[in-house]
Design a protein around this nucleic acid. Structure first.
Lengths: 216, 216
DNA sequence: CTCCATTAACTAACTAGTTAATTGTAGCAT
DNA sequence: ATGCTACAATTAACTAGTTAGTTAATGGAG
């Protein structure tokens, strides 16, 4: 069949895609429903028809992106036999996801800055799941005598804080590099960055030698 | 003189204080001018009288907080003779500031998430100054043979990303600790946290021994 | 008496959300 | 195939409330 004049699934995903970009750029309150409708070239009433209200649309967007992120990391972690491999997979997969979905970090950081005002439960559970995942890896490593002096919560923030800031400041960093000649890692690939973070986390946790690493 | 019925300076700072709290909680678009006026118990027109418009108020708030932060860190850095002392002062002062002004991290993170939509110049210059400061310390340390394999931009994000996330997630972390029994560093003092971060950064940069440290 | 500080009342534009009417299409009987 | 039908998808027009910002008048203090 050719392009239909009516396609519910296509309309919904068009709305969600545009909403995601706009929410990432301007935040929940910064975006109007009319704006999303205009960007998606659909009638505004469709948003209420499919998502009930503005909050429903926001929740759908966030749920989608949070689930996709978590799923990808769990998937990547599965293929690793070693604790170090799992740690590396966690870092590199989170980083690669943040780079591939540049809408994710601003949505994530902003929601945290709001103290999860819009999505108390969803955000809370999602944050927890991610932390529990890393925390498990770190504690396992500690039991194996691999890591020393671990505070999982802080190590967690070191990883996701660094990556989120790195991705969100992309344009800012490039601007500073061009205008002021600062070395802001403007032309670093995300893989180099996550590799560097991983290497530094190993040093931080006083890992003796690099043994079995997960296949990239 | 007793409490005046008219006090321009007091009115202005009352407005700025309330605006700061509200902007930190809900973001620029999430706060209405009427709301700030009500919280400050002044007439809404006063805000336009003193700050021209909503953006002017926001800028005044951000400028104040960014300047205070930078000033405090530069001040703390002065008293240190050694590179390690400067690094430690940078980390602990930033952390203590973020804790003392809990409005700072959400304002900071949100503005970055917006790609500095509201304060392009101010935010850009402020970010740059802070980075240049740390970058200088790190490069000096590298020349002295103290630090190895430094990428200043990423180390910078490791420090400020971790601290900002730690402070903004305060209530979230405590909730998770109470409800789910997770160890989210819910009862950690900020000094312990910044001490831990400093120690880990030293390991990360492969510093051999801890020499002269800045007096706390 | 003269400014600076403050106020109430206003506007025009925008906000989320509703509603009733309309259109397209898949499925089914013929 | 054709026509009918029922329901899902879509629309324009609307509302009631909120928004940033203005203005002209009024207050107090030096």
């Amino acid at each position: 069949m050719a392009k239909q004049k009516r396609d519910a699934a296509a309309t919904q995903s068009k709305i969600m895609q545009n909403a995601m970009e706009l929410f990432a750029k301007k935040g929940f309150e910064g975006v109007s429903v009319d704006e999303v409708a205009a960007a998606s070239e659909i009638n505004k009433a469709m948003i209420f028809y499919y998502f009930k209200n503005k909050a429903g649309l926001y929740e759908a967007v966030m749920q989608g992106v949070l689930e996709a992120m978590y799923k990808e990391i769990v998937e990547a972690d599965k293929c690793c036999q070693s604790t170090l491999g799992e740690l590396k997979a966690f870092i590199t997969t989170y980083a690669s996801f943040a780079k591939r979905y540049p809408y994710f970090p601003p949505l994530f950081l902003r929601e945290l800055s709001d103290n999860s005002a819009h999505l108390p439960e969803l955000m809370f559970e999602s944050m927890k799941k991610l932390f529990v995942l890393l925390s498990g890896i770190l504690q396992k490593g500690e039991k194996e005598g691999l890591f020393k002096d671990v505070i999982p919560m802080i190590v967690h923030f070191m990883i996701i804080g660094t990556i989120n800031l790195y991705v969100t400041t992309d344009t800012l960093r490039k601007k500073a590099e061009n205008e002021d000649g600062l070395d802001t890692c403007g032309s670093c690939e995300i893989d180099e960055v996550s590799e560097y973070i991983y290497k530094k986390i190993l040093l931080m946790l006083e890992v003796d030698d690099e043994k079995n690493i997960c296949r990239s």
